[in-house]
């Protein structure tokens, strides 16, 4: 054992700073550097058991734990929202084991850990976004075998994926993939953008912030350096297109964000609101209003006569 390994700063509960031991961090850090050097390639890493279950963000957490320091500010989102249970839980974990300040503001964060979304606010060069990855292998739905997938990546043999997308077009008239929509990184590696909606795919291209991806259960790390070409697969006669909504955000009126559908009653009533909760809140604070923003909502609620408790 070397001297560095013996010394460790103990934080909460006697665990090391940011939970992981220094040897594990070093191993993950080396993998992160490889991942940056080979954009889109899945680097195998000795993933550790985390105190949260596999599938709940352990890969993203290991990446975050390996990069985070005392002068970082962390934002954690799940489905674009800062207040979903899992996001709260992961933020709570790092506040506890790394004693870092946390924030809901994308602009204030130095590290954003995310599940299923890229924030609506632009990110900068001095920020890092860490994606939680349930299934890093974009070819897995077509080929369950790791050995086969690895060969396809090695020889850039992505015909299987092209054929599958083309079959969609033949059958449905469009590519029937709405999230986890595969991308080519730097014209070399086919990559799963994690289950973000394809709406977010274009944000990954030429993105100023470093994008890191951690898959804990599958034990893979990959990365997209800043200003790297990320192209969603498509065909000349069927170009890639993102989702669009006929409505705007009912709360902040945004016209260009990813919207969650919210069911209002059992009569088919619904509205759409920004999935990025912080972005939406900030816009409302700036005075933007949607048709169901607070004042509108009150009027609406009064009209349908079912608003007493919310009003209070």
């Amino acid at each position: 054992m070397s001297a560095a390994q013996q010394q460790a700063t103990e934080g909460d509960d006697g665990y090391n700073f940011a939970y992981l031991d220094e040897q594990t961090k070093r191993m993950i850090r080396r993998c992160l550097l490889k991942a940056v050097a080979v954009p889109g390639y899945q680097v195998p890493f000795g993933g550790r058991e985390m105190p949260l279950p596999y599938g709940w963000g352990t890969g993203g957490m290991q990446v975050t734990a390996s990069i985070i320091g005392r002068d970082d500010t962390l934002k954690v989102i799940d489905q674009g929202a800062d207040d979903t249970t899992n996001a709260v839980n992961i933020r709570r974990f790092f506040a506890r084991v790394a004693e870092v300040p946390t924030t809901e503001s994308t602009a204030e964060a130095s590290i954003v850990q995310t599940r299923h979304r890229v924030p609506e606010d632009p990110m900068r060069e001095d920020q890092i976004i860490v994606y939680q990855v349930p299934q890093p292998e974009p070819l897995r739905p077509l080929e369950p075998r790791e050995i086969e997938c690895r060969k396809m990546h090695a020889y850039k043999e992505y015909g299987l994926m092209q054929v599958s997308l083309y079959e969609d077009i033949a059958r449905f008239g469009e590519i029937a993939t709405s999230y986890s929509y595969p991308v080519m990184v730097g014209d070399r590696y086919l990559m799963s953008p994690t289950p973000i909606p394809k709406f977010d795919n274009p944000k990954m291209d030429d993105f100023p912030a470093l994008q890191l991806f951690g898959a804990g259960r599958e034990k893979r790390i990959y990365a997209i350096p800043p200003y790297t070409k990320v192209k969603s697969l498509d065909f000349d006669d069927h170009p890639f297109a993102v989702q669009q909504w006929e409505e705007d955000c009912a709360l902040c009126g945004a016209e260009d964000t990813f919207l969650d559908e919210v069911i209002l009653d059992d009569q088919g009533g619904k509205m759409y609101v920004c999935s990025d909760s912080h972005y939406c809140a900030r816009r409302r604070a700036e005075g933007h209003e949607g048709k169901l923003s607070e004042s509108a909502a009150r009027a609406y609620a009064a009209a349908v006569g079912a608003a007493e408790e919310e009003e209070a």
């Binding site: 899992n86 259960r217 969650d260 999935s275």
Partner: peptide, 23 residues
């Protein structure tokens, strides 16, 4: 540990993906 985590992760919100699939 892996299997249990991944099966149970289906309890986590998937609003965004579900919305994409709805569309």
């Amino acid at each position: 540990v892996e299997a249990s985590g991944f099966v149970q992760h289906l309890k986590l919100p998937h609003y965004v993906d579900f919305q994409s699939e709805l569309q």
